[in-house]
Every structure is written in C-alpha cells, then in structure tokens.
Design a protein around this nucleic acid. Sequence first.
RNA 1: AAAUAAAUUGAGAUGAUCGCCGCGCCUAAAAAGCGGGGAGGACAAAGUCCGAACACCACAGCCGUCUUUGACGGAGAUAGUUGUUAACGACAACCGGCUAUUUUGGUGACUUAAUAGCCAGGACAAGUUGAACAGAAAAUAUGCCUAUCCCGCAUUUUGCGGGGUUAAGGGUGAAAUGGUCAGAUAACAAGCUGACCCGUUAAUCUGGUGACAGAUUAAAAGAGCUAAACUCUAUUUGGUGCAAAACUAAGUAGGUCCGGCAUCAGCCGGACGGGUAAGUUGCUUGAGGCUAUGGGCAAUCAUAGUCCUAGAUAGAUGAUCAUCGUCCGCCUUUGGCGGAUACAGAAUUCGGCUUAUGAUAUUUAUUUGGGU
RNA 2: UCGGGGAUCGUCUAAUGGUAGGACAACGGGUUCUGGUCCCGUUUAUUGGGGUUCGAAUCCCUAUCCCCGAG
Length: 115
Amino acid sequence: MLSKNNRLHKEKEIKSLIHRGQTFFLPEFIIKYQKNQKNSSRFTFVVSTKVDKKAVVRNRLKRQLRELIRGVLPKVHAGFDVLIIAKPNSLSLDFAGLTKQMTFALQKIKLLSDK
RNA sequence: AAAUAAAUUGAGAUGAUCGCCGCGCCUAAAAAGCGGGGAGGACAAAGUCCGAACACCACAGCCGUCUUUGACGGAGAUAGUUGUUAACGACAACCGGCUAUUUUGGUGACUUAAUAGCCAGGACAAGUUGAACAGAAAAUAUGCCUAUCCCGCAUUUUGCGGGGUUAAGGGUGAAAUGGUCAGAUAACAAGCUGACCCGUUAAUCUGGUGACAGAUUAAAAGAGCUAAACUCUAUUUGGUGCAAAACUAAGUAGGUCCGGCAUCAGCCGGACGGGUAAGUUGCUUGAGGCUAUGGGCAAUCAUAGUCCUAGAUAGAUGAUCAUCGUCCGCCUUUGGCGGAUACAGAAUUCGGCUUAUGAUAUUUAUUUGGGU
RNA sequence: UCGGGGAUCGUCUAAUGGUAGGACAACGGGUUCUGGUCCCGUUUAUUGGGGUUCGAAUCCCUAUCCCCGAG
C-alpha cells in the first residue's frame, strides 16, 4: 500500500483529472495524468466490475498495481496526479508482465526518470 | 470391493525482503522506535427474499373522504393446529390430504397395513369467470344417433309418416352429473326397489389444549374442476434507513440584496441565507462463542464455568521469492519431473431463507461385481 | 444501503392459459448465359429449477444474467 502522501482520494480532484488530464492507452490499462502543485506524485486506481465480477479478483489486481507503483515510486518525477484504469486484458498477465508494461508506459509519457 | 447420491467433517504450514491499517508503551504533541493485533466458514462477508434491534421523522396509529370515541371507500400482507422465538412468511412436533411401490380382505364397488416422497393446507354448499381439440352434450345437461312400443299407408324382405318411452349403449376427452351386486315391473328399461361401497351435511356422545379422530342417529339437494381466476371470510398494518442520527470547531463555493470604485468587463466591503468539505461519537461485548449439567419428543430453554476474536472510510488485512505439506499423472519408484491446491474479500448489528465450494475421512441409501 | 424494469430462432419483433407466428439472415431448389432481383421450400427459439392447473411463453416461488434510477 502506498503511504497517504502518494494517494489521490478526493473526489473533485479525480473528476477534474478525468476531464482535463492527458491520456495514454495500452491494451492492459488506461493512464490519465496531470500536473499538480504538490511536491509528490499521487496515484489512484480504478478496477470496475467489467474487468471481473468477483471482488476477490478485482482486489488482487488493485493490490498488484499498487505494489508495482510502490516499486517504481523513487524514480517517478514529483508533482503529478495519475489515474490508472485497468482493463480486462490485464488479468491475463502476471506480476512481471504488468511491471514491464507499466514501466514502458511511464517511460513513454516521460514520468519516469532514467536513473 | 467399486461407482453414484446425500449428510457430517474440512478447506495448508514455515521463513526472508519490502509495505499498509488500528491498539498499547514512549512523547507536551507528532515523527521515529518497541510490543502485540489485523478476512470467512453455508449461521456464507453474497443475493437482498422476509423479520428484528437501534436512530430520526410523522403520528394516535396503513391510506383517503366525511357529519371524526365513528361511518364509508380503498391498498398491502398472512392463511391446518399447538408450540419455539426479540420477531417472522422462519423452525419443530402433530393433524389432514395427495402420489408411487408392495401388501390384507372382498364376486365387486372398495378396503387393510407398511415404506418412500410431496403439499402456499381458509371458502367453489354466496355470486361471477374459464375449459382449446375431440365429442350428441362441457355446466341451465339431454336436442341427436341408436334402441323399443303403438297407429296409419304401401309392402316379398321391408320402407315412409305420426305419436309414446328417455333408462341402458354412443368412437371422444384431463374431466361426462356417484358406484357395485342382485331383484321386480315390463314392450325394452332405469335409485324403480333391496343390500352394500364411497362421499357430503347436521345433531349428540367419547377422547384430545387443539387441528382432528372414533361411535351413534337423521337428512337426502349425491353437490364436478378452477380462488398461485375475479371474489368472499378471518387476522393484521406508519415512513425512512448508520450516507440513520448526535456533537465539535471552522465559516469556504455558488446565489440574492445594499454600499463604494470602475467606460464596460469586473473588483472590494457588509448583510441575508445556504449548504460544501473535515473531525469525533454511533462502531463493535453481542437476542456473542465454547464446554458441562438439567428440562423438553423436538425446535429450543435454564443454570454454572470459561473466552474476548478486524473495525477500514475511494476503503487496511498485502506483494515477491524460497522450502515443506496434501492430492493427481508420468518415469529410470530410498527418488525425480510436471500439474493441481476450491468457493470466495468485512462496511451498523443480529435471526431466518436462498444460492457458490476441491481433496481426505466417516455414516446412510442405491446399483454392479465377487465370495460364503 | 435501497428502489424499479427486463430475458422468445443467429438478429429484430408478435402471441385472451389451449398448434410458439412474422420479417431479415443462413441453407437448398427454381428462374437467368452468369450474378442480383423475384418465386418455392427447409433449419433454428420461450434464461435455469420447482410448483398451481387437464394444459404454462403467459399465473406463483426461487436462482442466474442484463439494464435503469436514488442518496
């Protein structure tokens, strides 16, 4: 789990992010991101019932995504709000595959530093 | 012994690294640190089909109207009896009925008994509705065919017309206006008569808390099915839901009005009123779990002992790796390799109902094979 | 935490409790030199499970799935 500084949880902020943020598509997720005025980057995750009807499966996917972000967090540029929407394809990947796809995406949109 | 079904049981362990949420210690407070806790067992956290606790609102108790201690009209729920329960449409026991199989007695209608399963099980004997196809006829039964008798006419057989008897018989159908055996009258015949069987209604008696059961007597209007069709009868009834609700501090967005500044756009100040976001409580010790004893056929109740076992708030309880365990398959069988390890994730709490779940073990039932 | 509606051939859509109908599609045949158009025929369905009824797509219960709404 991410610490509270790195969580995005206000409903208004999420809505404004959905409306104004830039979007990046992958077969596994949709990533929306936007600059904020803070010192740290904040993340939130959406896994809808369309991905899977079982709460167990959805919760597991959410936990894996959070863990993944926690791993790359030191390398992420500060000052961004990020919303990650999972798609049904992501269930077919294991943790290593998810990590690969996510790092690729974050590098593409230049949130990830090379260090 | 195997297979299948049902019920019960049961549903992994340890370590490493990196993390999350409460609680306690420490602290003025926080951070850090330390300690300890953090996902279920079908009674599902699920579905949200019922019920209750708790809270608020409305109210004098379902709703509407009126001439308001009531009347009229309307809506919903429940439906054998007794009990259990905080409550229920749940549960238990009993009563009654239906179906299937076997079985006892009888010429027969029918009946005796056992086992298994099922029942939303008030009323069709207040009224209304509906019943395709087939069939003479489907609810006011009886027109028709057939049968049979009498009269008249024609006549070889027999045919035609009129009248009488409507009881048996009439391919049907889910269902045909009780049934069986015998007898009499007679042209043929029928509850026409007798005995019996089944069923209905009423009264009395006996037993049972009661549903009801048994016995006796009487009456014949022997009355079809359908109320999970309208309807009638009896009993009964508030709404919203923890995002309920209470408290704390702050006084922000958008709006209206007034005043000032400004060419306009707009800006500043004040008032009204408003509801947005935050924290705390509600919140987890409860109609609680486990064990023993006792009451009760049982559901369940009483007493004693013992235990405390999540409480998040866009939502923690995890991720990755390794080793072992259990099961299955294959092989080169002290072992190796591969695969599997179910259903499922708390959101105020609780009682029921419904529904998801792999292996092992146990019990019961059925089937098959083998042995005696 | 609650409330409401729905499910019929591959698709769309009918059906008082009484033979599940129609259109398009698909397939086969005919017409044509060939294809299209046109004509004829065939195939395919009441979401699952129980109940009421002589009889259920329809009535009742229950489950599954889908859609919509409130805070």
